[in-house]
Simulated scan of single mutants.
Amino acid sequence: MLWNVDLTLVDVAIVTRDAYADAFRQVTGRPLVKLAPAMGRPDSEIIFETLAINGIVTGDDHLPRFIDALAVAFATKGRRLGKEGRVMPGAKDALKAVARLDGVVQSVLTGTIKSNAILKLKAFGLEKFVDFEVGGYGEEVYPKATLLQVAQGRVKRMYGFACGGANTVLIGDSARDVQAARIAGASMIAVASGRSTTAELHEAGADVVLEDLTDTPALVAAITHLTTPLNRKAV
């Protein structure tokens, strides 16, 4: 099971924007005027577009410097996450329920850089359900579909079993998540808790669309339906 983080499991948009503003000032020496919209994209892509729309000519060192600065800025605001952010409805119960399924490995496939993804989930006590070492993250400059396949390779190396389309399920809230799953050959459970509507998620090709994560039995039933009995170990 691969979970998207933002607007699927948690919402910490205010803190994230402030961290971007701090990182932008540190890297460029200028205040951030406009932040590129996330729209299911990785931090690496958001960083490049943010620099461009603010008139910064990028060099080879801009991305690694910005990622480092973003990690530091986000960590300094860690105490704000629990106060100004929120767990998405049903997310904790959903993670608990999936963790009880036999042979399931839970990780994340997120546009957020790894250190910040960990902090986002730790702020709400969700990290205990996730193996972060086999996930895919925003500092890895791959299209999300390729990043999904990278995560599958990590599971194979660490757990010793292959994760193909029959036993990989992505849960996310954006049409981009759906497109990534389709390209990578994984199953897709879309949750209409983000900026993509139910209709858009269906149109993008999601196997199952849920309004949110509050119906835990429906989520578990969808996972069981989408993974084959022969390959009950799933990521």
Rank of each mutant, 00 (worst) to 15 (best):
E49V: 01
N54W: 06
V98L: 11
V87Y: 02
K34Q: 15
E127R: 00
A73T: 03
V105W: 01
I14D: 14
K114W: 00
G82T: 15
A73R: 00
V33S: 13
G85N: 01
G55H: 01
Q26R: 13
L119S: 12
R86N: 03
G78Y: 04
G85Y: 01
N54Q: 07
Y142C: 01
K122N: 13
A71D: 13
R80M: 12
E140R: 08
K34Y: 14
P31E: 15
V105D: 11
R41F: 04
V87A: 12
I14M: 09
G135L: 07
L95H: 03
D22L: 11
F132A: 09
K96F: 09
A75G: 02
V108W: 02
A117I: 04
F66Y: 14
G59H: 05
V72N: 10
I56W: 03
I46F: 03
V108F: 00
E45N: 06
R79H: 12
Y20L: 04
V87E: 12
A19G: 05
T112N: 14
A36Y: 09
V108M: 00
L63Q: 12
A117W: 04
V141M: 04
P31D: 15
P37F: 10
L32E: 12
D102G: 09
D102W: 05
V57H: 08
S44A: 12
F74W: 06
A21R: 12
V27L: 06
D61P: 00
F129D: 06
T16G: 08
T28C: 10
I56T: 05
Y20C: 12
A117C: 06
L101C: 05
D102A: 15
L121W: 00
L126R: 05
V134L: 09
G55R: 06
V12G: 01
V12Q: 04
N116K: 02
G90P: 02
K83P: 01
V130T: 08
F124T: 02
Y142Q: 03
D60V: 11
K128M: 11
D22Q: 08
L35G: 03
T58Y: 01
E133F: 00
S115N: 11
S115G: 12
V108A: 10
A75Y: 13
T110P: 03
D102F: 07
F124A: 10
S115T: 14
L95R: 09
V87R: 04
R25N: 11
V57Y: 03
F132R: 11
K128Q: 15
F48G: 08
V108Y: 06
D61F: 03
A21N: 10
V15P: 01
L35P: 09
R30F: 08
K77P: 02
V57L: 10
L126M: 13
G78S: 14
A38D: 11
G40P: 09
N54P: 07
L81Y: 05
G55N: 02
